[in-house]
Design a protein around this nucleic acid. Structure first.
Lengths: 254, 254
DNA sequence: GATACACCTTAACGCTGCGTCAATGTCAAC
DNA sequence: GTTGACATTGACGCAGCGTTAAGGTGTATC
């Protein structure tokens, strides 16, 4: 049985363009070309296309498929295992993403109800950041979903007064931290005050405070470039300084 | 505080190219352009970039992000909900994929135990192929059972003698290649013998030999790190040496 | 005032995996 | 001979940048 492009395409459920592309990149060449330049495929090619489509369906990219189907010595099982690992990673990421999106939706809707005021623009960013801090990967992994749900509920129930309070606290942290940074001493009075303010601020978001989480968050400020960027905005090195101050404040990692 | 591209890029942890691209597509324009044509960003832009990056991390595409961040009245929550649906779909697909891959791996390994031969390396791939053909649901539906049974029979019909022969050839390739590598001359007699053996070995797997494919495979040995690792196991540089020998042998790319 | 060097600019191609014209050739049927 | 369904190659387009290339600025140093 011989097939022209379209016949094979119909058989396999792909487009003719796909077949021509596969020819082009050398992953599936026709058995022969007839006198008019038409691509003619045979049984072998059908089989091979099956292989290709199988791997493709597994999400393997064409380059790798080429290796697998062209080189007989290639260890397909190992390749698949490797591929599986990547898929699992992807899945984890995706789950995180979904959960993040869901939290954001909840927050957005919660906020909308909370206050009908405009000029809320400037706060958006902070909320988002806080959201990240609270639901960031590492934290969630460490504390589990329970914690996350609870703190989420907490935020939604926040009153206008609390909102003002927390905003003020955040400002105080920033100011005190900036002052403390000038001293250069994370163990100093100012730095420790900043760490304390930071703790108070945190307590608006965390239903349960622990030195470990606090210290962990401090480390994250340094590890995650976006946090670093936020804290280092005015003075590079501030994030690391805050982390050190928190370490000393919590007595962790001494 | 004002920022040039690089400063903002460092702050946000993105590349300058990204910023210029964002300018180009109108998602983040600089506050102003100075007399030398430099892009100058201000605080507003920093905040906006943070929003953009936040949504980006959620996997929202830039076009959608543009809508969200440019129009303040835009219903971000609704957009996110829509986005969530897509993510959930993706997740389902991914889970299916993973389960398929796992099945395939399990089957492959099942087969391995079934046949007690070790050193079945060269055949692994074929085993997988057959598994695919036999157990790839969609594929089977498309091509019918006939094709599947036939190609499966192919491997099972490969005799013990053929297996031994191909294994021997593979060993010879390795040995001859190692010897040839010492001479350092890919055009030499030994190297050309290795290339010839390699061709013979290949012919057990390829229904149709061509110089182009042979040469292509040689190049692949160099391009793909896993192949390179395999051939360079004993002597680094062997993969490249083999490729050169094949090039000369086939007369390609001269 | 020249030179070095870091930083800026625009313009353009490259990557994946095809979809989608466009212009043109071939085959079988009416 | 014409129509219509097929085939061909060629080329652009998509997202989101990475990566040269070729050249203009800004600033410090000799």
């Amino acid at each position: 049985m011989e097939y022209t492009v379209q016949k094979l395409a119909n058989l396999a459920g792909v487009s003719t363009r796909t077949l021509r592309y596969y020819d082009e990149i050398g992953i599936l060449k026709p058995a022969r070309i007839n006198s008019s330049g038409y691509r003619i495929y045979g049984q072998e090619e059908v089989d091979r296309l099956q292989q290709i489509l199988f791997y493709r369906e597994l999400g393997v990219d064409l380059h790798r498929i080429k290796l697998i189907v062209t080189a007989p010595s290639f260890d397909g099982a190992a390749a698949l295992k490797e591929h599986r690992e990547k898929l699992l990673e992807k899945k984890e990421q995706l789950e995180l993403l979904i959960s993040n999106v869901e939290k954001t939706i909840a927050l957005t809707e919660g906020r909308m109800k909370m206050s009908n005021k405009e000029k809320f623009e400037g706060f958006k960013k902070k909320m988002i950041e806080d959201n990240e801090k609270k639901y960031g990967k590492e934290i969630r992994e460490k504390y589990g979903k329970d914690t996350v749900e609870k703190s989420n509920a907490k935020l939604q129930n926040m009153t206008e007064a609390q909102y003002k309070e927390v905003t003020k606290l955040a400002e105080q942290v920033t100011e005190t931290l900036a002052e403390a940074f000038k001293t250069g001493d994370p163990a100093g009075e100012l730095a420790q005050k900043a760490a304390d303010l930071h703790k108070q601020w945190l307590c608006y978001y965390w239903h349960e405070y622990s030195k470990e989480s606090h210290a962990g968050l401090g480390q994250m400020y340094v590890d995650d470039e976006r946090f670093t960027a936020y804290y280092d905005k005015e003075q590079p090195g501030t994030a690391a300084f805050l982390r050190d101050a928190i370490y000393i404040y919590t007595g962790m990692k001494q």
